[in-house]
Design a binder for these strands. Structure first.
Length: 931
RNA sequence: GCCGGAGUGGCGGAAUUGGCAGACGCGCAGGAUUCAAAAUCCUGUCAGGAUCACUCCUGGUGUGGGUUCGAUUCCCACCUCCGGCACCA
């Protein structure tokens, strides 16, 4: 029996492709390169975890594989690489728990995931494979970090520039420094005095600073800098964690250990400098709108004003607040400082001090999560002090409360309980006055009204609409020296260091003489030291000092300063997992380059804009929506820095983004609510039952997870049906972008479809029953042209499910007529090749071809064949279909209506009524309105 | 709470973006083949009703309203589910 043997065919072609280097794509300038249009199609690279691939990965990979196989047949040079994001906490924690070195577990995990990926027959150019843990890779991650370290953001040109240029400008006196170390640009100094608020007291030139001060000013401007910042400290893991690594109840995602809020000196990346450009340029890329919205919200730009309030009895001190509603200043009835605000200690009166100190203490130990988790009940303490409202000189009490965050705005607010929900809750709780200053539209309660309206009780501003008021009062505040317009972002600078072993070491040396010094480029890579004991110091004590594992590599950490030659030590922190994924799409372009992170000519070729991708960058980037914000924002930020410094040719890294939906699956529970695995579920009856007990089970669709016992393993599906069936099924389930349930019962359907193709072209026992001699069947020829057109269009629109159903319809028609010429069979095989490449290659070969079909031209279709002369028109009477007529496609309206009225059913419906109106949609439908 | 997305047969989904609702697949039912089964092939399959029958009628795309000759598609209000953010002043 020589039927369709998926396992044998798939193995054969995967080996053939690999042996022949079928999908190796040369770069410009390399042997075998042909100058043609390019297409860069990228999959979000996987994290090689111990559990291997889940069925969600191949969904996106299959989609891109179809696109690139199609593109090759359409004559594109295709860049389609794959690699592994292999540093990070999960691998390391697994290694710690099992006492194996992370390099070993990572290597094992990569081997396993690569074996799985290769089973699917994806047409990756494997010669470009990378892993972020490769020394040759992370050497360039370190190099990019040094670019960040050696750059600053020049607000005047809104771009990164080399730090030496800043030093030049400072030394030449083109830039001054104020008392807090911030840069001051004399070109704008004429306007400055009016804008100076608070205790700023003029500027200094660089030469007037001490050596240490100069260094502090420069270090404070770098895009990679160190700062004392509040972090999520997990003593049990011995590291700080990103917010997304902390669960809602303030514990570590990995290990479920308590996490504490605490200030620590950390590496930060100045992504906030790029907030406006990240916001503006998102308009230029072809991304799903919801993802763009999420990025905009994450950046969270708001426009408002900073206003200074004097403090009663504290000459020279002011409370600076940020507000987006300066028009409600007259309604401010109290102020709130964040518990960490430096003025709390200064202004608290003696009698209030014990209560305030206790409050600040408790707030300090709560994590941000805990603080927000208790959002329902507002807490706070009065400091005993009063501030003066600058618009009406009223004394208002100053409170401290943890609903105000030190990290946003100025860490202090003016509270307008009448028109702010949070302030209203607080005011009601502590019986503070509530004064209306905005008149809402008719019928809306003013208490808690936060929308726009008309100003009242606001002195000479009464009667102004909100927008106008904001502009007027901001102007007035600036004139009076009381405040100025200001912009704020939710986006924070990026906390970039982890106290862990399994990450890129920072190429930084701490010198007691010279401060922070970058490792010279020619000394890269700075390799991770081999360590027997790579465990972090763990503790139960929230105040335990961080002790990064690299601190134990004593030989490694002791070094000499590249600048002064004196003894120095290496940076002990490691980079977070995000680092490697911020630029991997660039390394794929030129993975073997030992001179640069990638050659610029090569970069310009693959990243160039095109009609379909006007912003340039990767032409199609496919992955899950879980990376909507962080990865995609971080990568955009790095890319912009590389662009500013002349290392990348495009402003954006990813021209087009496509998010695949999540694949979920059915989960079954018995009456006690215990999950039941698929092996124990009997689906043959009306409702799912337990195979042994016979108990009726409840069915629901859930995210795949071990605890729900509903994980589908791709290996077993492929073993049973083959990779082509798997690919086809995932594409046939529904639209790529929506989340869909995996239903094992549907898999045989697409498998049957493949078997029908096999039988139609190869046949059982190698007798192709349906292949006939020319001329074949005219109807089949027309349908084939339709199918070629539809499938091509659908691939370009990423609508794979309907492309497959079109192919199914073709096969069904062939079975019905029983006739197919060899030439038709060949064209159909080419159309199906992107979807089921192994089977297509095998049939192609059996039809007499000795070369791969991967670079055959996509079959052409003849538009004139698709135009039908006569069409069936449905006829509606008063919006209901009453009959169908046949008429020439190009018939005049009058003729079609005349024919329509001859239809007995239509005539009956029109009978005895007056025709008011007739509507003819050419080639589509006739509609008759009667009365 | 705010911001997104989605609700269509027993199930997954389709519908040229205002023009025949349910393509294609699963499941189910019937038939052919077979000693029998599997596999395969063919037919039917939204619900209710009329008819010997070709067919025809009525209802129907989460709910309620609206615009239109005509609404799964557009507008208003609401319900449910999924995803994101969450005291951002």
């Amino acid at each position: 029996m020589a039927g369709y043997d998926a396992a044998a065919i798939e193995k054969k072609w995967q080996d053939t492709w690999e042996a022949n280097g079928t999908f190796v794509q040369p770069n410009p300038g390399e042997d075998g390169f042909v100058d043609r249009p390019k297409l860069y199609v990228l999959d979000m690279f996987p994290y090689p975890s111990g559990t291997g691939l889940h069925v969600g990965h191949p969904e996106g990979y299959t989609a891109t594989d179809i696109v690139v196989r199609y593109a090759r047949m359409k004559g594109f040079n295709v860049l389609h690489p794959i690699g592994y994001d292999a540093f990070g906490l999960p691998a390391e924690q697994y290694a710690v728990e099992h006492g194996v070195h992370p390099r070993e577990t990572t290597a094992g995990n990569i081997a396993n995931i690569e074996r799985q990926i290769k089973m699917f027959g994806f047409s990756y150019d494997w010669s470009r494979r990378i892993a972020t843990t490769d020394v040759d890779y992370y050497r360039w991650t370190q190099w990019i970090f040094l670019q960040l370290f050696d750059s600053w953001f020049d607000p005047q040109v809104r771009a990164a520039r080399p730090i030496e240029e800043l030093i030049h400008d400072l030394e030449a006196g083109r830039i001054h420094v104020d008392s807090s170390g911030d840069l001051v640009y004399p070109t704008s100094a004429e306007r400055w005095p009016a804008m100076i608020v608070g205790h700023r007291d003029g500027t200094l030139t660089f030469g007037e600073l001490s050596h240490d001060q100069q260094r502090a000013v420069i270090d404070g401007q770098r895009l990679a800098y160190m700062d004392d910042v509040p972090v999520n400290w997990c003593p049990k893991l011995g590291t700080v964690l990103a917010n997304e690594e902390v669960t809602n109840d303030g514990r570590s995602d990995r290990g479920d250990f308590p996490v504490y809020r605490r200030a620590m000196r950390q590496w930060m990346l100045r992504i906030t400098a790029y907030a406006d450009r990240l916001l503006e340029d998102i308009e230029t890329v072809n991304w799903p709108e919801p993802i763009k919205i999420m990025q905009r919200n994450w950046i969270g730009r708001s426009q408002g004003a900073e206003v200074d309030f004097a403090i009663d009895g504290h000459e020279g001190e002011i409370i600076r607040v940020y507000t987006t509603r300066p028009d409600t200043l007259f309604g401010a009835t109290y102020m709130v400082l964040a518990p960490e605000h430096p003025l709390v200690d200064v202004i608290t009166t003696a009698d209030r001090r014990p209560a305030v100190q206790a409050y600040v203490q408790t707030a300090a130990h709560k994590s941000e999560m805990e603080r927000t988790a208790e959002a329902k009940v507002k807490t706070g303490q009065w400091t005993g002090a009063y501030a003066i409202n600058p618009v009406n000189d009223k004394k208002i009490p100053v409170w401290v409360a943890d609903y105000v965050m030190m990290g946003y705005g100025t860490g202090a607010i003016m509270a307008v309980p009448a028109h702010d929900t949070r302030d209203l809750e607080f005011a009601e709780q502590f019986h503070l006055p509530i004064v209306q200053v905005v008149e809402p539209p008719e019928g809306v309660d003013w208490r808690g009204y936060v929308g726009d309206g008309i100003a009242i009780s606001s002195g000479r501003f009464d009667g102004l609409a909100t927008e106008e008021f904001k502009a007027k009062i901001t102007e007035w505040l600036e004139e009076q020296g009381l405040g100025k317009g200001a912009v704020n972002y939710k986006l924070r600078d990026w906390l970039f260091s982890r106290q862990r072993y399994w990450g890129e070491p920072f190429p930084i040396i701490h010198c007691p003489q010279c401060g922070l010094v970058g490792v010279p480029e020619d000394q890269l890579p700075l390799e991770l030291p081999e360590m027997e004991d790579f465990r972090p110091a763990i503790s139960d004590d929230p105040d335990a000092p961080p002790a990064p594992p690299l601190g134990k590599a004593t030989d490694w950490l002791a070094t000499t300063c590249p600048t002064c030659g004196g003894p120095a030590t290496r940076e002990l922190n490691a980079m977070p997992q995000w680092a490697g994924s911020c630029w991997y799409y660039l390394r794929y372009l030129d993975p073997g380059n030992s001179q640069r992170f990638c050659d610029s000519d090569v970069e310009r070729y693959w990243m160039a804009p095109s009609d379909a991708n006007p912003s340039g960058g990767v032409d199609l980037y496919v992955g899950g929506a879980e990376h909507a914000v962080l990865h995609l924002l971080y990568a955009r930020f790095w890319h912009k820095v590389l662009f500013d410094l002349g290392h990348a040719s495009t402003v954006e890294p990813f021209g087009k983004l496509f998010n695949q939906g999540m694949i979920r699956s059915f989960a079954y529970r018995d009456q006690r609510g215990v999950y039941v695995g698929y092996d124990d579920v009997d689906l043959t009856g009306d409702s799912p039952r337990h195979r042994e007990t016979g108990e009726t089970l409840s069915e629901s669709v859930e995210k795949m997870s071990k605890s729900l016992k509903n994980v589908v393993n791709p290996d077993t599906v492929i073993a049973e049906y083959g990779a082509d069936t798997f690919r086809l099924y995932e594409m046939f389930m529904g639209p790529l972008e929506v989340s869909k349930p995996w239903n094992i019962q549907d898999v045989p359907g697409v498998h049957r479809f493949l078997q029908r193709i096999w039988r139609m072209t190869v046949g059982d026992d190698d007798v192709a029953l349906l292949i006939t001699d020319p001329p074949g069947c005219a109807e089949i020829e027309v349908l084939l042209h339709k199918t070629i057109k539809k499938v091509g269009q659908d691939i370009e629109a990423m609508k794979f499910n309907t492309a497959i159903s079109a192919m199914m319809e073709f096969v069904n028609a062939v079975f019905k007529t029983g006739r197919l010429t060899r030439d038709q069979a060949e064209r159909f095989v080419l159309v199906g090749a992107p979807f089921a490449p192994h089977m297509a290659e095998e049939i192609w070969q059996r039809l007499g071809h000795d070369r791969t079909l991967a670079y055959e031209s996509w079959p052409a279709y003849d538009e004139s064949l698709l135009v039908e002369d006569t069409v069936e028109w449905p006829v509606q009477v008063n919006g209901k279909v009453r009959g169908r007529i046949t008429a020439p496609a190009g018939a005049t309206d009058e003729d079609v209506v005349a024919v329509a009225l001859t239809n007995p059913n239509v005539a009956a419906a029109v009978e005895g009524k007056a025709i008011v109106k007739t509507i003819v949609v050419p080639g589509r439908l006739v509609s008759i309105v009667v009365k």
